[in-house]
Amino acid sequence: MTQDCDDPVVLNQWHPLSSFNEIVVGQKHRTVLLGRSLFYQQTAKGELFVWSCDNVSFVLPTKRAYGFLWTSLGIPPDELFAVEEIDEPDRQNVATGVFGVNVSFGRAIENFLDMGHFPFVHTGILGEEPHTEVKEYDVDVSESRDEIMATRCRFYQPQASLASAAGADVDYIFRVPHTNCALLYKSSPGYEAEGRMDVIYMFLQPMGPEWTRAHTGMCVIDVANSYESIRYFQQIIFGQDKSILENQFPKRLPLDSRAETPIRADKSAIAYRRWLAKKGLTYGVIPSI
């Protein structure tokens, strides 16, 4: 798995390493990013350090954002993508766990954007047969923000909110502002009238081309649910996806349009693959011929 990365698109990007919840101050932690072994540490003064395990003098840039420590193996941009909701005072930003998954980050992002699998993989939670239809939605690649947005997404959820036992369509918005980070916005029970939505995010740390750690979190307007129950819920969902993701073949995301068979429901995935291809990304993907 320790294969060196020579893809400038991926090298020159910020990547998440850990949520601050899991960093023990003063302790040296070890991880892998793009095939390189790294140490990271937060000092008692709050200073952050990331350096190569093989070469102490190879010190990497650091960034603190959204409750996570980020680093880069190249020359990263000044700014990370924006998530305005995180600063809203009545929200809780909860890291919901880290999951290792033996698949490329691209496959994991596609799974995150996909609604069609809800009734089959998250049966009884995010979907349920026979309510399997993926209704038409819109996908845009915003040139100015360089991100993919899928809007007007709706999907039937068996228990639409904690308040009601009945099923109903739930609204979603999906954002891919980074090659290996995605967010979804979902109607927040009790706040539908105000149009406020919960934010669920997945920041992926590409350990290798076919090996990923998913840092997940939620930014919710929800006082009723405990931190533990939110974490537990996300772990069930990711556990269900993991067994599917690790059975995807090939493990790298194929960018060639003739590699697999898309349908209308896969519009956002098609946009994502094209967007990656246009960036010239080669790491963790099978470039189109």
């Binding site: 596609e110 059975n247 073949f249 697999e260 068979t261 898309p262 349908i263």
Partner: peptide, 8 residues
């Protein structure tokens, strides 16, 4: 391999 998304 399912030709849709490559799942076994």
């Amino acid at each position: 391999r399912c030709l849709h998304r490559g799942v076994r």
